[in-house]
Design a protein around this nucleic acid. Structure first.
Lengths: 224, 224
DNA sequence: ACCTGAACACCGTTCAAGT
DNA sequence: ACCTGAACACCGTTCAAGT
């Protein structure tokens, strides 16, 4: 008769695991993969976890921190490199940076968010460490390497952020095409250099431009 | 007796100028300068202009486009360069890029927003054209110049975006310091390269690192 | 064409009060 | 310590209906 009133959620949902930071991040990641980062809101996550939004703030300080944790989890799959070789370090590094970029291509909105973060999760640190190791193997001086790793990662993230895709249209209506049109029609008298350069401004695939950028930044780091 | 009912706003506010895109952008810019981009919302702008939010969509497609227009307006003050010199083009270019960066330092949130845009306003095109002219004067091949201008501007914008300042705390609680702490304490066995490099990872002022980055990207563009 | 109020469909975060 | 419902203080954008 005095049966305790079990909350509705407990009776209906088969197994509500206890909340944890890892569990929160996992649900956030799954929601992002299925519906895009736009749908990963605190309220949405809370209802997914059968609780109120306030409960999530026990595990993350705010949305930005959640995004940082999601990135780090994603980076676990990026894999660790073996011993860096003094012969192939340059192309190994470009491959690694490109792999990171491609990984983020799948989540351009997350890339956009990460661009405003200073990630410091263990997998991100692992990535930094590996890049520094490759630069070291290539004989790049320590200061240049240290300052350069920031630029390389930032460029990679920004490249992914601009990529855009699928159900993640924040920027929405292609201003990419708008710029292209404006470049194509740039008047030789007003914008002589854009006019002169217009074909190359629009040339190349994303991968060509991306790999070239990484390579030439690396070369620039060695030079100065 | 049949005095037409004049809307309250007309009676109270001395002069309500007719809406225009330029006027909208001007009010948006002023609001940003006084209270930060966070307060520049469609609703806020509308009430500033004595109208409803829906009216603004006659002049801009969405918030992103408004931000693009604000950036372009800001860039009007960046000034046009004279004839680029074959001797001093490199330092002229670094100065120009640094000036653009410093300009955006005042509005880090706008920089963050611009990072996800492909600006195509007249002043932004002017900036691209000037950069291309300087690279041309320096003998940088046309493809490298065309592909490089993107990287340089993106890096400049990203640098400003990360700067953060005053009443524009989106990122809020310094994850900058968090990364610094984690780098300082990186264990030599888990992160040998971070440990080895830790002093240089945290060295240098923003200006030193920024100018170095521009310079070494420019050098890398020439090399490859 | 331009303008509008109201509505639609949401947000992040904090608070006081539980357990 | 952890968890919660409710509240605070907002959002961007669209719609149908004006002028």
């Amino acid at each position: 008769m005095s049966q305790r009133r079990i909350p509705l959620s407990r009776r209906e949902r088969p197994a509500k695991p206890p909340l944890s930071r890892a569990g929160l991040v996992a649900v956030a990641l799954r929601t992002m993969q299925e519906e895009g980062l736009e749908r990963v809101t605190m309220r949405r996550l809370a209802s997914e976890l059968d609780t109120g939004p306030a409960s999530l703030y026990v595990y993350v300080r705010n949305t930005a921190e959640l995004h940082g944790a999601m990135l780090d989890e994603l980076l676990a799959d990026l894999g660790r490199h073996g011993e860096p070789s003094a012969d192939t370090w340059r192309s190994e590094l470009i491959d690694l940076l490109w792999a990171y970029t491609v990984l983020l291509f799948g989540y351009p909105s997350l890339a956009r968010s990460v661009l405003m973060l200073r990630p410091s999760g263990p997998h991100y640190l692992r990535l930094i460490d590996t890049i520094l190791g490759l630069l070291h193997a290539g004989g790049v001086p320590v200061r240049q390497a240290a300052w350069g790793v920031d630029i390389l990662l930032q460029l990679a993230t920004a490249t992914a952020a601009e990529h855009g895709s699928r159900h993640e249209a924040v920027t929405a209506t292609g201003e990419e095409e708008e710029l292209a049109a404006v470049v194509r029609e740039a008047s030789p008298s007003t914008y002589p250099n854009i006019h002169r350069t217009r074909d190359e401004l629009l040339s190349g695939t994303g991968e060509q431009r991306g790999r070239w950028a990484f390579g030439s930044i690396i070369d620039g780091m060695r030079a100065s």
